[in-house]
Simulated scan of single mutants.
Amino acid sequence: MPVIAVTGHLDLSPATARSVRRALDEFLAPYPAAELTGASCLAPGADSLFAEAVLARGGRLLAVLPGPGHPGPSATAAERTCFARLLAAAERVLTLPATVLDPAAYVAANEQLLRLADLLVAVWDGGAGNGPGGTADMVAAARAAGLPVHVLWPSGAARTGH
């Protein structure tokens, strides 16, 4: 039973979030609920959309948190509510010990996701990214490790830049 991990952009426009969710539902459709396990950091954007799609299909969710302060002080009230709901639904939660949610904490979380995963789905526009711990960094690490990567970026998708 494969474990599918996710990486992706936080700053999806509302229309993009809807099209990404549809694309994730289509991507996950071939996996029977009993064989579906998703691994996510539950960050806003792609991570949360993926976790919701896994749970909607009846799959199991593994949460990998970069530190006990995740999702961080910049999360909105709506993002915190979504995070709490997904965290409560997770079958297993692995919280890493980072006391500061900096790039090193996200790199460590990505490394843990890659250790768990048989496949990585990347909600990614193909850009260079924002450095260590970001989406492009995670895709590069997965490819270097020989992990299959499925890039998902619907036609017309856009980021908000926030």
Score class of each variant (00 low, 15 high):
148 P>R: 00
12 L>C: 00
8 G>V: 00
53 A>I: 02
79 E>C: 03
145 A>W: 05
139 V>L: 03
80 R>W: 08
145 A>T: 05
132 P>E: 13
63 A>Q: 06
113 L>P: 03
17 A>N: 10
103 P>I: 14
124 W>T: 02
10 L>G: 06
94 L>G: 10
4 I>S: 04
73 P>Q: 14
162 H>I: 13
161 G>I: 08
100 V>W: 13
119 L>V: 03
108 A>V: 06
108 A>E: 08
2 P>D: 08
39 A>C: 09
98 A>H: 10
149 V>F: 03
54 V>N: 00
53 A>V: 03
146 G>V: 10
34 A>S: 13
128 A>Q: 14
161 G>N: 02
141 A>F: 01
100 V>D: 15
131 G>I: 10
15 A>H: 05
138 M>V: 05
42 L>T: 01
81 T>S: 15
77 A>Q: 12
97 P>V: 11
106 Y>I: 00
16 T>H: 08
16 T>S: 09
134 G>W: 00
159 R>C: 10
32 P>F: 04
120 L>D: 06
161 G>V: 06
60 R>E: 06
28 L>D: 06
95 T>G: 11
32 P>E: 02
101 L>K: 06
66 P>V: 05
26 E>I: 11
49 L>D: 00
76 T>L: 14
87 L>C: 07
91 E>Q: 15
111 E>C: 15
36 L>K: 01
143 R>C: 11
70 H>W: 07
101 L>G: 07
78 A>N: 11
115 R>H: 15
96 L>Y: 12
96 L>T: 05
74 S>L: 14
2 P>C: 11
112 Q>T: 15
74 S>K: 15
50 F>T: 01
